[in-house]
Design a protein around this nucleic acid. Structure first.
Ligand SMILES: [Mn+2]
Ligand SMILES: [Mn+2]
Ligand SMILES: [Zn+2]
Ligand SMILES: [Zn+2]
Lengths: 142, 142
DNA sequence: TGACAAATGCAACTAAGTTGCAATAAGATA
DNA sequence: TATCTTATTGCAACTTAGTTGCATTTGTCA
């Protein structure tokens, strides 16, 4: 998933390719980790792009509806957002500095989804798995 | 985990056993699912117990520090809380009505924790796994 | 029964997120 | 390129979740 592909995806869903939208997606793409609305607002302002918070929230909503980004719940007050890339993955959340890292799918949880759907009255369509602990940086700092 | 055991645990940590604390824990115990601070506030008021929201937040914090309850992140704006019972479990979250059900641990994710800790610079200490989908009630209603 | 810490309420605050409405700009078309 | 339509944006006012300082009340134990 690079900037060009992303632009393609955005245009295909009927969205205009505005400066704000472009910069916001660029930030999410460059960031190795999910970003919150307040964080995005700050980063955009730091880039010299003046944008209102209402626009950010509407933008995140629009991109979410089109399956270009997804909201992830990792604790903390604000929701975080990340580009929906090709492969499914999970997250490592540092309890110390709150940094988030991606971690590739290890076990096949789709099997678990099927088991639950088969054995309960609940139809599972997706899942999210977060691992909590201490990151490399926080171990050396202490 | 029944009311008596819970009272014991509360007393053992040096907490006084107040009417508010008792009712709050009772609500969490009776509820099959996690509850948010605003929800608890509403339920307590419905029970005729007048309590300030500041008290609720401080209470949740105190019980959390003592490992009597835990905060769970399940999407939605408000954090949810549940009694820490003996066995580890995960959650089924209905995307329609937002209801939450417990689901017993199926696979052994402790193994995954160990693998990650061994192969990355990140020391995993816990995890949370949520399954999303449609609950029984919401399937029949549609 | 005090004494003393824990618990509580209140008011004022911050931070995240939402809504309605008016102004602006992207980009398709002529 | 000028024009048109509609998506996008900003602004202000609002809601909801959660926090803080301080004064008052209440549980517990000697
Ligand atoms: Mn990720
Ligand atoms: Mn649970
Ligand atoms: Zn860290
Ligand atoms: Zn449901």
């Amino acid at each position: 998933m690079d900037a060009r592909q992303l632009k393609e995806r955005v245009r295909n869903t009927g969205l205009r390719f505005t400066k704000i939208r472009e910069s916001l997606l660029e930030l999410l793409l460059e960031s190795g980790a999910p970003l919150s609305a307040p964080a995005l607002l700050g980063l955009l302002h730091a880039k010299g792009i003046t944008v209102n918070k209402t626009t950010i929230y509407r933008e995140l909503d629009a991109l979410g509806q089109r399956q270009i980004i997804r909201q992830v719940q990792l604790g903390g007050r604000a929701a975080q957002y990340e580009i929906i890339a090709s492969d499914h993955h999970h997250h490592l959340v540092c309890l110390e500095c709150k940094k988030v890292e991606d971690v590739d799918m290890l076990k096949d949880l789709d099997q678990e989804e099927k088991k639950i759907t088969a054995s309960t009255q609940f139809t599972v369509t997706s899942h999210s798995l977060e691992f909590y602990g201490i990151c490399k940086g926080c171990k050396t700092t202490i």
